[in-house]
C-alpha cells in the first residue's frame, strides 16, 4: 500500500475499484441526486473536494493518532470539511445548494469517504492519499454524471438544464435541448429510474470487463496462466 504506483491508484478509482460501480458505496446520494447532470456535477464536486481534503489530512496525521481513537478522529475531520464545503456552496452556488439540500450535509455519511480514510489514506503518504482522493472522487462524479445524463436525457430530453446554477449567467447557453418538444418520461426522473439506470451501468461495466478479460486470455497463450486479479471490492 505504501508505494502503490500512481497509475494503479488512478485505475482503481476510475474503474477497477470505482466507488459507485464496484464498491457500491455512497449509493444514497448517488441515486437521489442523479436526476439531472447539473445536480450530479454539484454533488460530485462537493464529494470530490471533501474526499481529497479528508484523505490528505488523514494521511498527514496518521502517525499522530492512536489506533483506538482513529475512527472518531476521521469522523471529526470529515464532518468539519463537509460543514465547510456546505457553507461555501451556500455562499457561492446558492441555487444549487437549495436544490441539493440535505444531500450536502449527508456527504458526511457517504461511507466511501470513511472507507478511503481507513483502508488507504491512513496507511500511505499525503501525495498518494491525495491522488487516491482525486481518483475516487472523479470516479464517483463520473458515475453520478453518467447516470444524471441518462436520466435527464430520457426524462426531459435535455442535457445540462439549469447550468446557470453552476456557471453563472453564461451557463444558460450550455443547456442542450437534445429532443425538442419532448413530452418527458417520468419514470426516468423518479427513484425507480435511478435504480434501473444504475443497474444498466453496472451491467455495462461487467460486459466491458468480461470482454477485456476474454481478449487478454485469448492474447496470452497457455504459457502465462497467471491472470492479474483485479483489486476489486476491497472495502466492500
Amino acid at each position: 500500500m505504501q508505494d502503490k504506483p500512481y497509475f494503479a491508484i488512478a485505475r482503481d478509482g476510475l474503474w477497477n475499484n470505482n466507488p459507485g460501480l464496484v464498491q457500491l458505496l455512497g449509493l444514497c446520494p448517488l441515486l437521489a441526486v442523479s436526476a439531472t447532470v447539473v445536480n450530479a456535477l454539484g454533488l460530485g464536486f462537493a464529494t470530490l473536494l471533501t474526499l481529497t481534503a479528508s484523505n490528505v489530512s488523514v494521511s498527514l496525521i496518521r502517525k499522530l493518532v492512536r489506533e483506538e481513537i482513529r475512527i472518531p478522529v476521521f469522523v471529526l475531520i470529515i464532518a468539519s470539511f463537509v460543514t465547510a464545503v456546505e457553507m461555501a456552496m451556500n455562499a457561492y452556488f446558492h441555487q444549487l445548494y437549495l436544490i441539493l439540500g440535505i444531500f450536502i450535509p449527508l456527504i458526511v455519511t457517504n461511507c466511501s469517504i470513511l472507507a478511503r480514510a481507513e483502508t488507504f489514506a491512513s496507511r500511505t503518504d499525503p501525495a498518494r492519499a491525495a491522488a487516491d482522493g482525486l481518483a475516487m472522487g472523479v470516479g464517483f462524479t463520473g458515475v453520478l454524471v453518467t447516470l444524471g445524463a441518462m436520466r435527464e436525457l430520457l426524462g426531459q430530453g435535455t442535457l445540462l438544464a439549469n447550468a446557470q446554477m453552476l456557471a453563472g449567467q453564461w451557463g444558460q447557453h450550455l443547456t442542450v435541448h437534445v429532443i425538442p418538444d419532448y413530452d418527458g418520461f417520468l419514470l426516468a426522473m423518479l427513484p425507480p429510474g435511478a435504480f434501473i439506470g444504475l443497474g444498466l451501468l453496472l451491467a455495462l461495466k461487467n460486459v466491458i470487463d468480461d470482454r477485456s478479460a476474454q481478449r487478454r486470455r485469448a492474447g496470452s497463450t497457455a504459457v502465462d496462466r497467471t491472470e492479474t486479479p483485479v483489486e476489486g471490492g476491497a472495502a466492500a
Partner: peptide, 11 residues
Amino acid sequence: AVLSGFALAGS
C-alpha cells in the same frame, strides 16, 4: 488530549 485537539481544530 489528541481527540480534543482535533475537535478544536475542526471547530
